[in-house]
Design a binder for these strands. Structure first.
Lengths: 88, 88
DNA sequence: AGCTTTCATGAATTATAATTCATATGAAAA
DNA sequence: TTTTCATATGAATTATAATTCATGAAAGCT
């Protein structure tokens, strides 16, 4: 599943397991630091992610309270309707 | 709320109340017929909408089973986190 | 203070998606 | 069977979003 954007979706999925610093996220999703940073900002703007400073790192975490339920409903839709992939 | 795209979101919201023909949808959302038609195709491709022929009309309806739950979780997120509008 | 690490930012580019315009198709009516 | 109404489609344009590149800022080390 990758709604509109692969990078943003990868970030969200990475943070689903645990909070991570930017460097960690960059390693995980395998794209440029600035690309990731821009997406982190976009995702934070609409409160999909939270940030907290920790030394010189910034730890991003998923707003699980509201976002996980969204992911689950979407995943259910995809499983039911487009199991062979779909560009939702 | 209007995720990525206003037109598509307007279509979805219109169909939330009841199934409609293309002409009805066009009137409701107030955009060009071809624009609406393209969006209807995109939305149908990922099974967000269903279609059935009725004479020379095509009646589009929302796939309520999976889509309404998605809408509800998203709306919850928006209410909680960005009540003053947000470009989620 | 100077250096390094970590991350953010803005402007420019590139990629992707939405809209329009013109036209086609298909079903029913005349 | 021609015409009309309802809708779809493709190509071209336009709008919007994502990526890159270069640089900047802050925190912590030495």
């Amino acid at each position: 599943m990758h709604f509109a954007n692969k990078t943003k979706m990868d970030i969200i999925m990475s943070l689903r397991s645990r909070p991570m610093s930017v460097t960690e996220i960059v390693r995980k999703v395998g794209r440029e630091q600035s690309t990731v940073s821009h997406d982190l900002r976009r995702l934070s703007r609409c409160h999909i992610l939270h940030v907290k400073q920790k030394g010189k790192q910034r730890i991003y975490s998923l707003n699980k309270k509201t976002v996980v339920p969204i992911l689950e409903t979407v995943e259910k839709h995809v499983r039911k309707n487009c199991p062979r992939g779909c560009n939702l």
